[in-house]
Design a protein around this nucleic acid. Sequence first.
RNA 1: GUGGCCGUAGCUCAAUUGGUUAGAGCACCGGACUGUGGCUCCGGGGGUUGUGGGUUCAAUUCCCAUCGGUCACCCCA
Length: 426
Amino acid sequence: MSPGALPGFRDFYPTELAERSYIFGGWRDVARRYGFVEYDGPPLEPLDLYTKKSGAEIVDQLYNFTDKGGREIALRPEMTPTFARMVAARANAMRKPVRWFSLPQLFRYERAQRGRLREHFQLNMDIVGEADVSADAELLAAAIDVMRVFGLTSEDVVARVSDRRLLNALLAGIGVTSEQLPAAYAALDKLDRDPREVLEQRLAAAGLSVQTAAQLFELAGATADEAAFSQLVDAAGATAEWETLRSYLDHLESLGVRDWVRVDLSIVRGLAYYTGIVFELFDAKGELRAICGGGRYDTLLESLGGVSLPALGFGMGDVVLGELLRVRGKMPASEPAVDVWVAYGDSGTVEDAMRVAAKVRARGRSVEYALGSQKLARQLKAAYAAGAKQTLVIATPELSANEAMVRRKDEKVELRVQLDEWIAGA
RNA sequence: GUGGCCGUAGCUCAAUUGGUUAGAGCACCGGACUGUGGCUCCGGGGGUUGUGGGUUCAAUUCCCAUCGGUCACCCCA
């Protein structure tokens, strides 16, 4: 956080911008590998684009105001509504499934915390028009490959997956009614954070019997054990749902990312939103917030007034990811360096350096030289400090007009070259 | 929005129960090494101690408020 910037907003100095660009580069690279194409929309949208989806309460959590034309508008807190609108407008004309990604800057009016600012960039990858579970596998594999492209391994990051339909069937199997579902989900979500007794109390308040509550906890705990899991599935008559998840895991195996994935029914995410498989990526040590979250939202496009198409997607923010990369030493140090530094000796002036710089720049290389008038020793010091890959010295008494001495970074030897030839090859 | 902890130079930190003009290292700028760079030496700029009040002869130090940071709650699109 930079003092001076609004709370929760960041100034990107060159070092930070280099890190951001590095992250963006990895994101675009992986999205491209999976055949996704990039889009963008306006950062400012009508307020009701968000209230329509999330209700009026959402207004507390976003930047909204009335513009000079009297329109109620908001800085976008998420990309999905914009995405839905854009897809809906051309749904009929597009080849399905649609694979789009975007790197929007998103805003939310909340108190900032570690990993959660008022502004961030988020990789959004979405697939529209494919109901088959293979699409779910493709999407998660892409999210995991993003981890890989940054040098992270399955030791560093774990993907926890669940399936809304399977969970609903299992919950129904142990006697949870549809009215009690929200309470059951809330309890699952809080499993790691709140003590068991507190959760039991809340479940009881929602009308769940002591026995049902106990089975609920068993359900969440059985995730690692396939045998016990199968029993629960059989008991609930959720075989079809289980088969879907099994097939999902098989696909992930084929895509080469099965090691990263763990079934975990305590993954909840937005209740009104997701309809099928959901997932989250966490750092394996559990020190940070979720790196990424997403899943299938087959009914959302239609409910937003668009077309009826199955869809799925995820969002991955730059803040937590950046922290993870720094903590794990995976963030490359930025080395802003010019290609060539032109220094001149006593036989010349800054204008000689200028003439050479102009020619080398015309060749497409980045060039810097000492502005003003400086002694050669100082110029060379500056060249070193700038991290110049090559330093060219011209106009010293021992050099003729068309000669220069060249030294590469980190090399001791200095070569005498013909200036014209050297520039031509630069 | 609620609560806990924390705010001294760009960064990391000092400043003896409250006591002269708030210091150091790194970084930055300049000088020396008589002109081919990383070393060394010397010097310099930079702070209304987050801000505003209060207590006191005297506040970086104690009290209150406020702003900011951080953690948790809420929420997670």
